[in-house]
């Protein structure tokens, strides 16, 4: 179990994250939702050790990970960025092999190569193996980045908007592959997401962030409610429940006059683990 405790991140004078407490379980997909600029990406980067928070600690199991070396951290947590620019030509095989970096000093071992071959097969990327990464489509690139994280073979997998640049088919494919992997390999996955429908469909648990704070957390149907969408996103929406799958239909932005409503959590329920709206209770 990965626990984040009292995480605070400031950029210049702006508080991006204020006192975040979250918990990531193995074998579970946790989605982080919230409008632009609420600190979803920042939160992931803090956990992945890419940026250093001013305050806060995090632990895996009983082990405190705050002062751990970057290379050791990379053996436990992998991170898939939104995009990975490649200024110089590399093949797909080489790109995925980079996932083995925490274990490579100078030369990849036979074991590393075998793992890469298996991962390419697992994600059905075999035919691209010796193609140039830059020549792939957006969806294929995203898959390669995911393959790299899978090759890293970590207990926790963080992904920043894994579906943002993808068409429908690639979106579904990637989400299915990952949720499959989460269950079979007992991995803890965290997604920063924009798409409420995809999030509610594939997540076991959702955290809604608002202005750098945890607005609420819970099961999808507990978090994705008309009221929460209105308060956090400032949008009026309707929600349909079709055989346990939620469908969100955004209607229109909330009128500015009522904006004092937005972003303020309802009384005392802001940090409660269970918070739901009885209207959509199945």
């Amino acid at each position: 179990m990965l626990k984040v405790h009292g995480l605070k991140f400031k950029y210049k004078d702006r508080d991006i994250l204020k006192k975040i407490e979250i918990q990531i379980n193995k074998g579970e997909i946790l989605s982080i939702l919230g409008p632009n600029g609420t600190g979803k990406t920042t939160l992931l980067k803090c956990i992945a050790g890419i940026i250093k928070p001013q305050k806060g600690s995090f632990s895996i199991g009983s082990k405190n990970m705050s002062h751990i070396k970057r290379n050791s951290l990379a053996k436990q947590i992998s991170y898939v960025p939104q995009s990975s620019p490649s200024k110089f030509p590399i093949t797909v095989f080489e790109a995925v092999l980079m996932g083995r970096s925490p274990y490579i000093m100078w030369r990849p071992s036979e074991k590393d190569l075998k793992i890469v071959v298996n991962v390419l097969k697992f994600l059905k990327l075999e035919e691209f193996a010796s193609k140039n990464f830059d020549q792939l489509s957006g969806g294929e690139k995203q898959k390669v980045l995911i393959a790299r994280a899978v090759a890293q073979d970590t207990e926790y997998l963080l992904m920043d908007e894994p579906t943002s640049n993808l068409d429908l088919k690639h979106q579904m494919e990637i989400m299915e592959v990952i949720s499959n992997m989460v269950k079979t390999k007992n991995v803890g996955a965290v997604f920063a997401m924009h798409d409420l429908n995809l999030a509610s469909r594939f997540s076991d648990r959702i955290i809604m962030l608002s202005r750098g704070e945890v607005f609420c957390t819970g099961r999808p149907e507990e978090v994705i409610t008309i009221e929460n969408i209105k308060r956090v996103y400032g949008v009026n929406a309707t929600i349909k429940n079709n055989n346990g799958i939620l469908y969100v239909f955004p209607d229109k932005p909330v009128n500015n006059k009522n904006s004092n409503l937005i972003n303020k959590p309802p009384n005392n329920q802001a940090h409660s683990e269970v918070f739901y709206d009885s209207k959509i209770k199945r």
Binding site: R70, S86, M98, M105
Partner: peptide, 19 residues
């Protein structure tokens, strides 16, 4: 050499891979 390879894919990726 290997770390230089990672750097070319961007700082974020390189950091996440332990560099």
């Amino acid at each position: 050499s290997w770390k230089l390879n990672l750097l070319a894919t961007g700082d974020e990726s390189a950091k996440a891979l332990g560099v």
